[in-house]
C-alpha cells in the first residue's frame, strides 16, 4: 500500500531525554518500550515506566509527534500476563500504535483492544506479500516494519501488492539476519532478542588486555581480538572475526551501519510510509544528531526528489556516529547480499 501522507520519520526513544531530542529535531513519530523484556531493547538503564511514558506522550503530542510502543518480543507462557498487561497499559495511555511481533499477542490485541492500531514489528519476519496479507487479514495490522533483507526492487514491488503500509529502516546498526529468525545470541549466552529482548547482552561481555591484543569474549567465546590502536566495536556475534577454512575475517558482517541517504528519493517514490531510525540504546545526543540529519534529508527529498543530493555534511555527521565509521545500504543494494 502506498502511503497517502508524507513519509514519516520514526525515531528511537530509549529515555525521556532521547524522546525530547527526537521530537525537538522534528521526528514525526517516536517509538519507546517499557522497562522489561516486553521489548527488543531490554537494556539496563533504558526505557520507560508508566509515568515517564505518559510524560513523553504528552511532550510529543504537544509538538505534533506521534508515539508508538514496542511490545515486540515473544512471550512464553510464564510471561503471558506481563505482556498482556503491558499491552493494556499502552492502550490506556492512548498510544498511536503498538508494534508487536508475536501472533498470539497480536490476536489478543485485536480481540481485547479493537481500537488499538497495530504495526507488525520487524521481529515478525514478514518479508513477502503472502505473510503480510496474513497478518493484515488475521489481526488487522495497518503497517509492517520490513526486515533488512529485501533489495530496493523487492521493496518497491511489495509496496504495490500488500494491504498495509510499509516502514523501512533508514539508519542505525545493521542487523544482517532476518529479524526474528536469529538466535545466535542465545546459543552463546542464553538470551536472545526474541525471548529476552537483548542481543549479545552486556553482562556476557568480557574485555581482556593480552599480549596478543585486546580480546573480547561473549559468554566465554572469543569473538574478536584487536591490535593496539584498532577501533573496537560492540561484540555482537555477527560482527566478530572468525576462522573459516583457516582464513580469519568478518565471516558474517563487518562492523558498519545502515544508511539509506543515497537512495532516499527511490524509497520516497516507491511509497514507503515511514523511514525508521534504529537505536533506542543510543544516547540523547546521538538521537538528536541523527534526527536532525534525517529530517533535513527527508524534507529536501520530498520537496524536490529529482534535485535531491545527499549533503556531504549529513553523510559526514552520520558516519561519525556509525559503527566502524562506515555505512552500507545493506540488502537494499543487491551486491551486498
Amino acid at each position: 500500500m502506498r502511503a497517502s501522507r508524507p513519509v514519516e520519520l520514526v525515531c528511537p526513544a530509549g529515555s525521556l531525554p532521547a524522546l525530547r531530542a527526537a521530537v525537538d529535531e522534528g521526528a514525526d513519530a517516536v517509538y519507546l518500550g517499557f522497562r522489561d523484556a516486553t521489548n527488543a531493547r531490554n537494556f539496563p538503564g533504558l526505557n520507560f515506566d508508566r509515568d515517564e511514558a505518559a510524560e513523553g506522550i504528552a511532550y510529543a503530542r504537544e509538538r505534533g509527534s506521534r508515539v508508538f510502543v514496542a511490545l515486540n518480543t515473544f512471550p512464553q507462557p510464564g510471561g503471558w500476563r506481563r505482556w498482556t498487561e503491558t499491552l493494556a497499559l499502552a492502550a490506556d495511555l492512548g498510544v498511536d500504535a503498538v508494534i508487536a511481533a508475536d501472533a498470539g499477542l497480536l490476536r489478543h490485541a485485536a480481540r481485547h483492544h479493537p481500537d488499538l492500531i497495530l504495526h507488525l514489528s520487524v521481529q515478525g519476519s514478514a518479508t513477502n506479500r503472502a505473510a503480510l496479507t496474513l497478518y493484515h487479514e488475521q489481526f488487522g495490522i495497518r503497517r509492517a516494519v520490513l526486515p533488512r533483507v529485501l533489495s530496493l526492487t523487492q521493496v518497491e514491488r511489495l509496496i504495490d501488492n500488500v494491504p498495509v503500509e510499509l516502514e523501512v529502516f533508514g539508519f542505525g546498526s545493521l542487523c544482517v539476519m532476518v529479524e526474528g529468525r536469529c538466535v545466535l545470541s542465545s546459543f552463546i549466552t542464553g538470551r536472545s532478542p526474541n525471548s529476552c529482548g537483548v542481543c549479545s547482552p552486556a553482562e556476557a561481555v568480557r574485555w581482556e588486555e593480552t599480549p596478543a591484543g585486546r580480546q573480547v569474549r561473549l559468554g566465554g567465546v572469543l569473538t574478536d581480538c584487536y591490535r593496539p590502536g584498532e577501533p573496537a566495536g560492540y561484540p555482537t556475534l555477527c560482527k566478530g572475526r572468525f576462522r573459516v577454512n583457516d582464513i580469519t575475517y568478518y565471516a558474517i558482517e563487518e562492523p558498519t551501519s545502515l544508511n539509506v541517504l543515497d537512495i532516499l528519493p527511490a524509497l520516497v517514490r516507491a511509497g514507503v510510509a515511514a523511514v525508521k531510525v534504529e537505536g533506542r540504546q543510543r544516547s540523547p545526543a546521538y538521537v538528536r544528531e541523527v534526527t536532525r540529519v534525517l529530517r533535513a534529508a527527508l524534507d529536501a527529498c520530498q520537496a524536490d526528489p529529482d534535485g535531491y543530493r545527499p549533503d556531504p555534511e549529513w553523510t559526514g555527521a552520520l558516519d561519525r556516529l556509525s559503527e566502524g565509521q562506515t555505512h552500507t545500504l545493506g540488502a537494499l543494494h543487491r551486491p551486498w547480499q
Binding site: 507462557p77 501472533a103 498470539g104 490476536r107 489478543h108 519476519s125 526474528g180 529468525r181
Partner: peptide, 14 residues
C-alpha cells in the same frame, strides 16, 4: 519451528 510459536495463544491460533 521458524513460525516462532512461543506460547499457547499462538499455538491455539495456528
Amino acid at each position: 519451528a521458524q513460525l516462532n510459536c512461543y506460547n499457547h495463544e499462538t499455538l491455539a491460533w495456528l
